[in-house]
Computed example of a mutant assay.
Amino acid sequence: MFRLFFDMQKTLIAGLSALVAGALVSGCGKSEDGGSERSYAFLTNGVASFWDICKVGAETAGKDLGVEVSVLMPDGVVQQNQMLEDVVIRGVEGIAISPIDAENQVSAINEAAAKTRLITADSDAPKSDRMFYLGMDNYEAGRMCGQLVKEALPDGGSVMIFMGRLEQDNAKGRRQGLIDELLDRDPDPTRFDPPGQVPKEGKYEILGTLTDQFDRVRGKQNVDDTLSAHPDLGCAVGLFVFNPPLILESLKSAGKLGQVKVVGFDEADETLQGIIDGHVYGTLVQNPYEYGYQSIKVLDALAKGDDSVIPENGFISVPARMIRKDNVEEFWADLNQKLGK
């Protein structure tokens, strides 16, 4: 009798556990309107504070829409391709990706795009089968960055460009826009000046472009070497989120804070504090929070059959902004509010 009671109790507990587990699974990732479970993935092009902001935006969209969101941060193109393959196998409803090497990732992106909805965000892969690109016009943003350099160095001078990598579509665009603006050229997004072969035109001399492949030690060394080779450097420009902080670190070690003008890209805390302290003239910011939020929002709309979100020109613009001393504190306060700080 006791044995029978024990077996019945085990069966009852197992049944209740199954019901609870089923309820948890069915509730996770469900839309607020009771739709089927949907999941999405956002693949960044690296690990940086910029992407931490994007992650908050994407996850906030997931909560607002009642869907599951995964934000994956690779440390290189091989890992990004593997992540892309993995999320496709997992059966996500849509993917947003910032390609690391667009030219050489067309095949991998096309394979994923053939099996699920895929858009590019932050950096484009225009030769791929992606549905559209969401982000800013990086060439125009580069020209805006060039305008900041002109303001910081109105009488002209030497400029060195520091950046993570040049393989990315966005990196090429912003670098070329910066160069064309400084040399007062007519706009031409298809132009490309090879690193180390940029001519001097007018009052600005571009000494070169140094990349670090996301290696912070190498990035700082690039600045150290430049300061040694060019003691009269006029302006250091950092085109990736971590470059301006590395520039500041190097300038501080060399006792040259305030002597060399600094213009940055993105909104690292050190860069924003540098503007407040007067060590950075300004920075050109994107909107990584909206990159994350809007990417998940449009992918979810597509999953629901709303094709009206597809832009006719293949581009959803999230405009860039210039941040200087007059608006940095307002910008930073708004950013911290979004991040829950």
Rank of each mutant, 00 (worst) to 15 (best):
R218N: 11
K220E: 15
K220C: 09
Q221P: 02
V223A: 04
D224K: 08
D225R: 06
D225E: 09
L227V: 04
L227A: 05
S228W: 00
A229M: 09
P231S: 08
P231Y: 06
D232N: 13
L233K: 01
C235A: 11
A236R: 00
V237Q: 01
G238F: 01
G238A: 02
L239I: 09
F240G: 06
V241I: 11
F242R: 06
N243C: 13
N243T: 15
N243R: 05
P244V: 08
P245R: 07
P245I: 11
L246A: 14
E249N: 08
E249W: 00
E249S: 12
E249R: 04
S250C: 05
L251V: 10
K252H: 10
K252I: 04
K252M: 07
S253G: 03
G258E: 03
G258C: 06
G258A: 07
V260R: 01
K261R: 11
G264F: 00
F265M: 08
D266V: 10
D266G: 11
D266H: 09
A268K: 09
A268N: 15
D269R: 14
D269V: 12
D269N: 13
Q273Y: 11
G274C: 07
G274D: 03
G278W: 05
H279Q: 10
H279V: 10
Y281K: 04
Y281Q: 03
G282D: 01
T283V: 06
T283K: 06
T283H: 06
L284Y: 00
L284E: 02
V285C: 13
V285S: 12
N287E: 13
N287P: 11
N287I: 09
Y289P: 14
E290L: 15
E290M: 15
Y291D: 14
Q294V: 15
Q294F: 07
S295W: 13
S295F: 13
I296V: 15
V298I: 11
V298K: 07
L299M: 09
L299C: 10
D300M: 09
D300H: 15
A301W: 10
A301L: 14
A301G: 13
K304C: 12
G305S: 13
D306Y: 14
D306P: 15
D306S: 14
